[in-house]
Simulated assay, not measured.
Amino acid sequence: MVTPYPLKFVPEFKERVWGARELERFGFDLPAGNIGEGWMIGEHPNGTTAVADGALAGVRLDELRERFGAEWLGARGISAKTGRFPLLIKLLDCSDDLSVQVHPNDDYERLGAGELGKTEMWYVLDAKPGAKIIYGLREGVDRETLAAAIDQGRILDCLHEVEAKPGDTFYIPAGTVHALGAGVLVAEIQQNSDTTYRLYDYNRPGLDGKPRELHIEDSLNVIAYDGAGASYGKTELPADNAWLPLAASPYFTVEKGRASGEWALSTSADSFQILIVCEGDGAIRWAGGEAPLRPGDCFLLPANLGDYKLTGGLTVLRSYVP
């Protein structure tokens, strides 16, 4: 019998045309190339992470799910549609602009077999001065207007742009046109999906030297032209050792907190919890031990972990399935 403990995973790093080496700041040993994504916790055909240490070192997340099920992941911790872990946790290094894109919802008829739609949220860990994020369409842009702008090579005229600052948060329901701009480093919490429809990619070559595929018809089909409920804003914390809600969706809840001294918390039988350390240093303590925490760390706390404490001085994101 394995006693539950906070699970840290070995990231899967993905080379992207818009990536670089910024994730090295978190102490990761990156493979060669322009690394844009670190898949920190996930179970997907395109990448499944394995436990880094402890009694379950080397066990993949899919194996952990099959072995422990709802006891460890919680009553709502397994996707009813796919049978997999329901979320995908990433760190993104956007050293260049990402494509202008949109994601479908779970009901889109052309969604790939075994795929979910993709509602997500970003928390900006760092941003260079003047960094921008494309976030939705400008007022009055409908399908016909957008299609014409694409044909005429002026899609950027239809997009709403926002300046990005460290600590900003962006909630991006399926159907929201969006793009991270050059110079931002973000934590991403999303549905467990790898489906992206590209509207525009700045006419640049991909890693293979060829233009990356665009998905104009699918994109026009899934965009929520009247709005999908997207929101963004600042995340100033009013007090230590208290949670500030950042995003609430049918798929995940995300909160931000600042631990100071000692913060007593607990898991519940409903869902696992994900902790992402944004800044500061400290530790997590539970009945069976203690582990250090530093920026970039991502932990999965089993639903049956029970009481735990965050100590030191650090800012964290907490995510779970509502």
Score class of each variant (00 low, 15 high):
Thr3Ile: 12
Pro4Gly: 04
Pro4Trp: 06
Leu7Ile: 09
Lys8Val: 06
Val10Ala: 03
Glu12Asp: 13
Glu12Met: 10
Glu15Asn: 07
Gly19Phe: 05
Ala20Thr: 13
Arg21Cys: 10
Glu24His: 02
Phe26Trp: 12
Pro31Arg: 03
Ala32Asp: 15
Glu37Thr: 02
Gly38Glu: 06
Gly38Pro: 07
Ile41Lys: 00
Gly42Tyr: 00
Glu43Lys: 02
Asp53Ile: 09
Leu56Ile: 14
Ala57Tyr: 10
Val59Lys: 00
Val59Ile: 13
Val59Thr: 14
Arg60Glu: 14
Leu61Met: 08
Leu61Phe: 03
Asp62Pro: 02
Leu64Met: 09
Arg67Lys: 13
Arg67Thr: 15
Phe68Thr: 07
Glu71His: 04
Leu73Gly: 03
Ile78Pro: 00
Ser79Gln: 10
Thr82Ala: 10
Arg84Val: 13
Phe85Val: 11
Phe85Cys: 02
Ile89Lys: 00
Leu91Ala: 05
Leu92Cys: 06
Asp93Tyr: 13
Cys94His: 11
Asp96Ile: 05
Asp97Phe: 13
Leu98Pro: 00
Leu98Tyr: 03
Val100Leu: 15
Gln101Asp: 01
Gln101Tyr: 02
Val102Ala: 06
His103Leu: 07
Pro104Asn: 02
Asp106Ser: 03
Asp107Trp: 11
Glu109Trp: 09
Arg110Val: 12
Gly114Gln: 10
Thr119Gln: 03
Met121Gln: 05
Trp122Pro: 04
Tyr123Asp: 00
Leu125Lys: 03
Leu125Pro: 08
Asp126Tyr: 05
Pro129Phe: 13
Gly130Ala: 12
Val141Thr: 11
Val141Lys: 00
Glu144Leu: 02
Gln152Val: 02
Gly153Val: 14
His160Leu: 13
Pro166Gln: 07
Gly167Tyr: 08
Thr169His: 14
Ala174Met: 08
Gly175Leu: 10
Thr176Arg: 07
Thr176Asn: 11
Thr176Gly: 03
Ala179Gln: 06
Gly183Trp: 10
Leu185Cys: 09
Val186Arg: 00
Gln191Val: 10
Ser193Asn: 05
Asp194Pro: 01
Thr195Glu: 07
Thr196Asp: 07
Tyr200Trp: 13
Leu207Trp: 11
Glu213Ser: 02
Leu214Glu: 09
Asp218Lys: 15
Asp218Arg: 15
Asp218Ile: 03
Val222Met: 04
Ile223Thr: 06
Gly227Met: 07
Tyr232Ala: 05
Thr235Asn: 09
Thr235Ala: 15
Glu236Gly: 15
Glu236Ala: 14
Glu236Asn: 12
Leu237Tyr: 05
Pro238Cys: 01
Pro245Trp: 09
Ala248Met: 02
Tyr251Gln: 09
Glu255Gln: 12
Lys256Tyr: 03
Gly261Arg: 01
Gly261Pro: 08
Glu262Phe: 11
Ala269Pro: 03
Gln273Phe: 09
Ile274Ser: 00
Asp281Ser: 04
Ala283Ser: 15
Ala287Ile: 08
Gly288Ile: 14
Gly288Pro: 12
Glu290Ser: 10
Pro292Asn: 04
Arg294Glu: 12
Pro295Asp: 05
Asp297Ser: 01
Ala303Cys: 12
Asn304Asp: 15
Gly306Met: 07
Asp307Cys: 07
Tyr308Gln: 01
Lys309Glu: 14
Leu310Met: 09
Val321Ala: 07
Pro322Leu: 13
